[in-house]
Simulated assay, not measured.
Amino acid sequence: MGKTKKLIELDNRAIEVLEKQAKLQKRSLKNYLEFLIENTALNFSEPSEEYKAMMDDLLERQKNGTLETIPIDEIRKKYGISRKTVD
């Protein structure tokens, strides 16, 4: 896949915050920005075939009454999450 260069302008405060985050991840600012933008773009893209197949299977099992679920309160209890933390 090809690459395209774009010039962007950000205010100084945004740059400071992004530089700190980049350092926390041991990345350069340029690399961190590319990472953020590419991940955001992937979130907008169509789900993978594997994901679609998994969801189709879950929906089919729900329709047939064979899907097993766990109540959210049990999950919260298992992981020590209080309702206040989540809600």
Rank of each mutant, 00 (worst) to 15 (best):
E9L: 03
P47N: 08
L67N: 08
K77H: 11
R83S: 12
E34D: 09
K63P: 07
E60L: 05
R61L: 10
S28N: 03
Q21P: 00
E68N: 06
L59T: 12
Y32I: 13
R13G: 03
G80L: 13
V17N: 02
L58I: 15
L18M: 08
N39A: 10
E49R: 13
K20I: 10
Y32C: 08
F44D: 12
K30Q: 10
E60I: 02
V86S: 05
M55P: 05
E34N: 05
P71H: 02
S82E: 13
L42A: 13
T69W: 01
L67P: 11
E74C: 08
E46Y: 06
I37S: 09
R27I: 00
A14Q: 08
K30D: 09
E19L: 06
A14L: 09
T40G: 06
E9D: 05
S45L: 03
L58E: 09
D56K: 03
T85H: 08
M54C: 06
R76D: 00
K52E: 12
F44G: 13
Q21Y: 11
R76A: 08
K63Q: 14
Y32V: 14
I8C: 06
T40N: 07
T85W: 05
E74S: 12
L58W: 09
R61E: 14
K77Q: 14
K63C: 01
K78A: 14
D73K: 11
E60C: 03
